[in-house]
Write a protein that binds this DNA or RNA. Structure first.
Lengths: 402, 402
DNA sequence: TCCACTTTATTCGGCTCATGAATAAAACAA
DNA sequence: TTGTTTTATTCATGAGCCGAATAAAGTGGA
């Protein structure tokens, strides 16, 4: 996105819109205080944003009046009438969709069970395009302006190319342009852990200052790393594939083809697979188990199943090692452990803490605060939608015409 | 340093001075092309810098004239008369010093053998202050304006505090203020790997774009990470302690107190110690061996000593794992392996490459270019001096008066 | 020697952007 | 009504940067 550096004006507009989407309706004075801008500047900026129909003003009397002296605030908010955006997450065998209006308000969401792995590139794009189009139609969304797509793997966010993915089994797949052609809309792409990290940091102002490393445990394990609230971008504008760091030289099989990756211990598919192996069940697959299946495993372990407890013990140890590497490599101010995998945090914690302590220098460990944020895949589609809306903000008025 | 955000003007001044120090004397047009500034802006900026005595102009006729048409360029350069700066590196049992003028020209350097470990805080600061003062006096440097100090460990670069160091055995040591009081000059601090990374990226423009991870192998192992040519700062404004990431659960002893750290395989002290153990020599110490001792070990291995070759094989494997972690976590555009330890790169390479390949995803590995830069500790003191001068640029005129 | 040509450097007017101060607006309170 | 309080807008100002015009300082050729 945004290849040419933004002008000061555009930067200011973005900051303003970002704050407004995050914090909800605000009066101009409040915006000024929030962003450290002078009232004059806010007035100027909002005037053009109102002009373009991106923002709208509250009707007089909407607020609890009568008690405060002085001229009442007129709060500004996103118009929400500039069309809608669809956020999509693609997993190994599941697609999650979410429809929001341009103000970021949720209008609909949907889970679809569909195995995506092993589809050819064209077939994959056809399936996704159909699923998205059907979802839009079912919900009467004729004003979709853009699609935001999050998936596992290394995503070139500038050109919308999946450079590599353990899930789609694709290499250098130009998913954004392929889907864009089929749907006739712009498609923005993001790594899934980055999308969730974005959503989480948007909700917590503390996490937007300094450096925040969000380790998402779910279908796979991913890392979203933010510096001063901005997503870190590696070479080719992708994020991190921290989940595929090999921690144990001959550990369990990972979906990336390697062995002993962090993900191969912690991800839902890994825990589910290993739990089935314990029970001598037949077909250990790499399919993503549902929340019920995972819940059952956790419950069984909590009930005292020794073999399962061992699994979680090993996983917790890997989590501790992983967080240790993050601490000593990046010295983040905040570490967030998030995603559906946090459902078993109680089981992971003892070995997690022991491993973390055994391998980090106390003085350095003390510099990072560790947060556990229980979050589901819903937060992920929220993240990708928020991120897409943010990228689109500057184009909203232009897209409105189209 | 520089807690309040710099004004646009100050940023431009810094960029200009930085370029000039890096590239050497340049004419105004050249500066403009180099930095993408209009001639008008360059003229304006240089006028005030000349005024303040920070820059000087070449005398007419200094260049090989006569061949070029048009008005001759008048090149600008650092005055070099605003005082000098001393750069210091502290190792386990060695101190390296370097004296430069404000133009960055080397005036003197010195190695001192002195064991710093196990000194009390006050004693350590006394020793350092005396060493620095004596060095300044011997070289008739009565115009020292600041000291730049690089050391291993986690350095709070804003407040000049050594939060933790395997070498100084100190915790939260306010070294900058302690030395500053003793010497009556400002002291700037930096992690040593960061200082070398800075020096290396200053010499190679390619490495200043995108993300560059410089792994320094020497006395210890450190990482300097730069984003768009700027040193990455973690919590508390320090760098990275990547050398103390534990790669092997029960590996050799490390100076940090842990086991199996990257450093415990690759650092000079580690190779030297393990080589001595092989020869059944008596006292395996953690002292930093000299270049001669290390050279002898490398020669012996090159001559075919199987036990030593095994050492280097294991070290190379660790290096491969380490670089693999960097690639999959940060996706840097460039990875630089540097420091005195590169002397044995030929011995490390086979197992390094095998380990790297076995644990990284080919598509991601392909995104990073790996550079090997043979560099000695001299480059390190150069780095810390350059970095200090850069930080001081804005204050040079002010310090001149003092 | 003088004039055209070339390249470098400076000056000047104008543009964008942000801001403080003054002013207007919209309420409440007396 | 009239003052008070708070919010929003307008306006003049200044910082910073730039393009264009101009000045400066040389070379080359008639």
């Amino acid at each position: 996105m945004t290849i040419p550096p933004l002008s000061p004006r555009e930067t200011a507009r973005r900051r303003l819109l970002e704050a407004l989407r995050r914090e909800g309706p605000m009066a101009r004075v409040e915006i000024g205080q929030h962003l450290g801008m002078s009232p004059a500047s806010v007035s100027d900026l909002t005037a053009s944003l109102l002009d373009e129909g991106i923002l709208a003003t509250e009707e007089a009397g909407d607020q609890a009046a009568g008690l405060i002296r002085g001229r009442p605030k007129t709060r500004l908010f996103f118009a929400g009438t500039l069309g809608s955006v669809i956020g999509v997450w693609t997993g190994f065998n599941r697609i999650e969709l979410r429809l929001v209006d341009s103000a970021g308000r949720n209008r609909a969401s949907l889970h679809v069970e569909r195995r995506l792995r092993n589809l050819g590139a064209e077939e994959l794009m056809d399936v996704l395009a159909e699923t998205i189009a059907a979802f839009a139609q079912e919900n009467g969304a004729s004003d979709v302006k853009a699609i935001g797509l999050a998936c596992q793997g290394y995503v070139d966010t500038r050109d919308g190319i999946v450079a590599w993915s353990p899930v789609l089994g694709a290499r250098d797949l130009p998913l954004a342009s392929g889907l864009g052609q089929r749907l006739g809309k712009p498609v923005l792409m993001e790594n899934d852990a980055s999308a969730m990290a974005f959503a989480i940091t948007q909700r917590n102002a503390d996490l937007r200052s300094g450096r925040t490393a969000c380790l998402m445990i779910g279908d796979g394990v991913g890392l979203g790393f933010l510096i001063q609230g901005e997503l870190y971008r590696g070479a080719r504008f992708g994020g991190s594939e921290f989940g595929h760091v090999r921690l144990r030289r001959s550990g369990p099989q990972c979906r990336c083809g390697g062995r002993g990756c962090i993900e191969a211990y912690l991800a839902d598919y890994a825990l589910h697979r290993d739990a089935q192996l314990i029970d001598h069940r037949p077909a250990p697959t790499l399919l993503l188990p549902g929340e019920e299946a995972m819940g059952a495993i956790v419950e069984q372990a909590r009930a005292g199943d020794a073999a399962l407890l061992n699994l979680f013990h090993a996983a917790g140890e890997v989590l501790g090692d992983a967080v240790g590497i993050l601490i000593q490599t990046l010295e983040p101010d905040h570490i967030v452990i998030c995603g559906p995998g946090t459902r078993a945090m109680d089981l992971l914690r003892p070995s997690f803490e022991a491993a973390l302590e055994s391998q980090t220098i106390p003085e350095l460990r003390a510099l990072a605060t560790i947060h556990v944020v229980e979050s589901s895949m819903d937060l992920l589609t929220e993240g990708v939608v928020m991120q897409s809306l943010r990228e689109l903000d500057l184009d909203l008025a232009r897209l409105k015409a189209a």
